[in-house]
Write a protein that binds this DNA or RNA. Structure first.
Lengths: 196, 196
DNA sequence: TAACAATGTAGGCAACGCTCACAATGTGTT
DNA sequence: AACACATTGTGAGCGTTGCCTACATTGTTA
C-alpha cells in the first residue's frame, strides 16, 4: 500500500496552480489557504512554509501574472511592423485579450499594487509595463507619428486607456461585442490623440 | 443612570457611516460586521437585521457612492458652459477629483458590479453614469464638436479614459502631481480624439 | 554519519460570517 | 386601552478561517 510521502515534492508550485484555478472560478475573496492545503493533500499549516500570509500568496500570483502579461505583449510586438499605428494596435488588442482571458488574475494584479505594503517585485513589474508603453511612445515620436512633449504626461492617456479598456471589458456595462467594436474605435481614437 | 435603549434608533444609517469610515481607512477587506456592531454599541447579530450579508452592506455602500458621484457630476455640469470642450473638461476633472477624494469607495463601486449577483439597483447606477457620458457626446455631436458615428463604440473610449484615469490616480504608478499633469494632457487628448 | 536547514504535522487561539430561538420595543386595530 | 403583530435587538453557538508555536520527518552537506 502506497502511502503519501511526508514531503509533497513541490508544494509551492502546486499551491500557485491550485490558487489560480480557484481564483479564476471563484475570485480572490473565496480563496482559502486551508482549502488549498486540503486540495493539495497537505496539512493546514503546510502552506505557511511557502507563503507566510495569504497576502503573500496573492502577491506571488500577481507577480506571475505580470510576467506572463509582459511576455505575451513583448512577443506580440516582435511579430508586427514598425509603424506606431501598427504597434499601438497590437499592444492594445493583446492587452485587452489577455485581460478578458484572465479577468480575475488581472484584477488581482492591479487591485493591490498601490498598497504601501506591496512587495518591491510587484511594484517593479508595473514599472516594466509602463516602460513598454513609454518606449512605444518614444519610438512613435522618433518616427514623427506622435507629437512632441515630455513623456510622463504623454504616457498618462495611454496608460489610462489601456487600464480603462480592461476595466470595461471585465466589469463595465459593455458586452464583449460592444468592447470589440469599441476597441477599434478606441485605437483610432488614440492615434488621433497622439498625432502631431 | 441613563441606560442604553434596547433599540438603537437608526442602526442602518449608523452602520453605513461607520462602514464608510473603516472602508476609507482600512479598505473593504478589513471591514468586519462584528466590529461595526461593536462600534455601534450593539450586539454582533444586530446588523443582520439591516444587511443580511456583508456583501449586502457593501452593495448598499456602493449604491450610495454612485448616487453621490452622479449628484456631484450633475452639479458640476450645471455650472459650466455649453461647449463640448468645457463640459468634457469639467466632467473629467470632477470625476477624477471624486475618485481621489474617495478612493476606497470608488474601488468598491466598480469592483463588484460585474458579479451576476449584483443587485439591480447597482447595475442601474452604472447605467445612469453611462447615460451622462453618452448624453455629453450626443450634445457634442449636435454642436459639431464631436465627429459623427454610432454612440456605443464612440462612448467606449470616453468611458475607458475616465475609468482608466481614476485607476491611475488611485492605484497607478503615478504620483498625484503626475496625474494632475497628465489630466490636462488627457483632456486635450480626448478632445482631439473626438474632433470631427 | 552527524549536524543543520528545509519542509511537513498537530493542536490551538482568536476572530469572523451567519443562523437560530428568544426578548424587548414599536404600531396598528378593535 | 388592550391586544396582536411586525420590527429590531440579544445571546448562544456552529463551522470556517488565518495564523502561531512546538514538534516530527526528510534532504543536504560537512
Amino acid at each position: 500500500m502506497k502511502t503519501r510521502p511526508y514531503h509533497h515534492g513541490d508544494l509551492r508550485a502546486a499551491l500557485l496552480v491550485l490558487a489560480e484555478d480557484t481564483l479564476r472560478e471563484r475570485g480572490p475573496a473565496e480563496l482559502s489557504l486551508r482549502e488549498l492545503a486540503r486540495e493539495a493533500g497537505v496539512s493546514p499549516a503546510a502552506p505557511s512554509r511557502h507563503f507566510k500570509t495569504k497576502q503573500a500568496l496573492l502577491d506571488a500570483l500577481a507577480i506571475e501574472g505580470f510576467d506572463r502579461l509582459i511576455t505575451v505583449l513583448a512577443g506580440a510586438l516582435e511579430q508586427t511592423g514598425a509603424t506606431f499605428a501598427e504597434r499601438l494596435s497590437v499592444l492594445t488588442r493583446t492587452y485587452v485579450a489577455f485581460a478578458t482571458g484572465n479577468p480575475a488574475l488581472l484584477e488581482l494584479m492591479f487591485s493591490r499594487k498601490h498598497e504601501p505594503s506591496a512587495p518591491a517585485e510587484l511594484i517593479a513589474s508595473t514599472h516594466r509595463l509602463m516602460i513598454m508603453a513609454t518606449g512605444l511612445l518614444e519610438d512613435g515620436q522618433r518616427r514623427g507619428e506622435v507629437r512632441a512633449g515630455p513623456m510622463i504626461p504623454l504616457a498618462v492617456p495611454l496608460a489610462a486607456v489601456l487600464q480603462g479598456m480592461t476595466d470595461l471589458a471585465l466589469s463595465g456595462g459593455f458586452t464583449p461585442d460592444q468592447v470589440e467594436l469599441g476597441l477599434t474605435e478606441t485605437i483610432t481614437f488614440i492615434l488621433r490623440g497622439y498625432a502631431p
